[in-house]
């Protein structure tokens, strides 16, 4: 069998990690606010941005 490329596997892993992080019950964790901005707003956009940054790094990373 042909091996799936490591990049593809890493991206899929990101998706599988992202799914629980961006749904309940994880979303119940952040509470209160930071500098007047609700923590949940920060959490959602933060995790999302983190996933995008990691995906960009994995996808654009040259070589194996």
């Amino acid at each position: 069998m042909k091996q799936a490329s490591p990049t593809r596997q890493r991206l899929t892993a990101l998706s599988l990690i992202g799914a629980p992080l961006l749904t309940y019950p994880m979303l119940n964790l952040p509470s209160g606010d930071l500098a007047g901005i609700p923590a949940q707003f920060f959490y959602l956009f933060g995790i999302w941005a983190g996933l995008i940054a990691l995906a960009a790094w994995v996808a654009e990373h040259k070589g194996k």
Partner: peptide
């Protein structure tokens, strides 16, 4: 409230399943 974000988080996660789309 923030629930509108789900409509955009879903595509993010699906697109990461590059193997399926490829």
């Amino acid at each position: 409230g923030l629930s509108f974000l789900t409509i955009y988080i879903g595509p993010t996660l699906m697109l990461l399943m590059t193997g399926v789309i490829l």
